[in-house]
Simulated scan of single mutants.
Amino acid sequence: MKSLILSLVVVLCLLIAMVFVEPFNQNISTHSVSHHSNDQTIIENTFKQDAALIRDTYESELYTLPAFKSGHYGLRMYRQTLDEKYAAAIWSDLARVASRLNYFSNEVHTPQQIADYTAKRISNYLTDSSERSVLRFQVTKDLPEYLYLGVDLLGSMARANEYGLKHQQDAKLREVIRRYDFSIYATNREMIKAWAAQLANQVYWLKQLGEQDVTAQFINAFKQAYPDQQDHLLSEQQLINKVYGLTHIIFAASAYYQHPIKENDFQWIYNYYRNNIDMIIERTKEDVIAEVGINFLLAGLTDDPVLLKTRSVIQKALDREHGLVPSADGEFDLEKGEHRNVLAIMLLDWQGVHHAPTVNNQPELFKSVPYGLTTK
């Protein structure tokens, strides 16, 4: 009888303990989650504050920069924020695009004119002994028209197209494009080793313009030019060229921050980043690291550890006295650092993708279009 009573007392004590302890445990768990959430919010806020610091630095001097730089910055910031304060920078970019296309359509469109133009362009590489310039000269001297077609013409036509515009002599310029088979450049491994990011842009621009679609051929050739198992054999410059190429495949596929990306469409790239992010951080530079992070944002992968790593690296690189991310050599030049710092702003304070600005969606930005451009 005593043992039965003792057993009942033990069971009763256990039940009482469970009643009081379980809410306590739930409180601990809830507090832990809440604390973690608060930590994340604090970290996110520091990223946003640092992005604001860089923005203030650049926007106080934005129109002292060349048109290409102010336009590059303003277009990206507009696509992020849809803020009309960037309208003047966008008009500046429009004027630059119009000027280039006016020049090409009027003065550089015959085979001889293109040959003369590219001869001058390629001679610039003879004065630079860097590994990148030597590679570019060696491969492009046999395909000089690429400097006109890929590096110059396609970029300007594609930018006009993104705005919902085209040049008045669009038909003439498209006839020039159609003289060339772009797969010759896009599948050449030596070209890829010299121009990976540029070729990634160009194959998507061609597709965007409704011309040749050699994106799949380019990606296949890229994989052959840069097999992952040979990364350890690459120089620093070649590793940077490879990763830039990867990031620009994603950027170009998004029409430069205008459309979201599906991770599984580019799974091989995201797998590479996850497997190699520490090596990328160690062996490349802030521009590249920021671009990798933005690739994750474009795919909506906001909780991926790779994104946090890239943001932390850029935040650590920020010089708060100068209000920007300096170059790898410690330079604080606003013009030279614009690309790196606009990427840093986007990475630290991402505001989503917007299909903008276009004539149809933001007509107020296109009330005055530079001479030579017209609606599609």
Rank of each mutant, 00 (worst) to 15 (best):
P144L: 01
D93Q: 11
A88C: 09
Y146S: 06
W91V: 11
K120I: 13
A89G: 10
T140V: 09
K85C: 02
S133P: 12
Y86A: 01
D83R: 01
L101E: 00
A87R: 03
L101K: 04
L75R: 11
K141M: 10
D142Y: 04
D93T: 12
T127Y: 15
E84Q: 09
N124L: 14
Y125R: 09
L149N: 03
S130Q: 11
D142Q: 00
A95H: 06
R136W: 09
V97Y: 03
Q113A: 02
R121L: 14
L135Y: 13
R136M: 12
L126S: 09
T110K: 01
V108Q: 01
L126H: 07
A87Q: 07
D83A: 04
D128M: 06
A119N: 05
L126A: 08
R100L: 12
L149H: 04
Q112H: 06
I90F: 07
R96Q: 11
M77A: 06
T81K: 06
Y117C: 00
F137K: 02
K120G: 14
A88N: 12
L75K: 07
Q80H: 08
E107C: 05
T110G: 04
R136C: 03
T81E: 07
A87I: 09
S105I: 12
V134T: 15
L147G: 00
L149T: 11
T118N: 01
T140Q: 00
R100K: 15
Y125H: 14
R76F: 14
A87G: 04
Y103Q: 15
G74F: 02
R79C: 12
Y86R: 05
L147E: 01
Y103F: 15
Y78K: 02
Y125E: 08
K141C: 05
R136D: 07
L135P: 04
T118K: 00
T118Y: 03
L147H: 00
L82I: 15
S129T: 13
G74Q: 03
F137A: 00
A88F: 15
D83E: 06
P111S: 09
D142L: 08
D93P: 08
T81R: 04
Y146P: 08
A115E: 05
A119Q: 04
V108R: 05
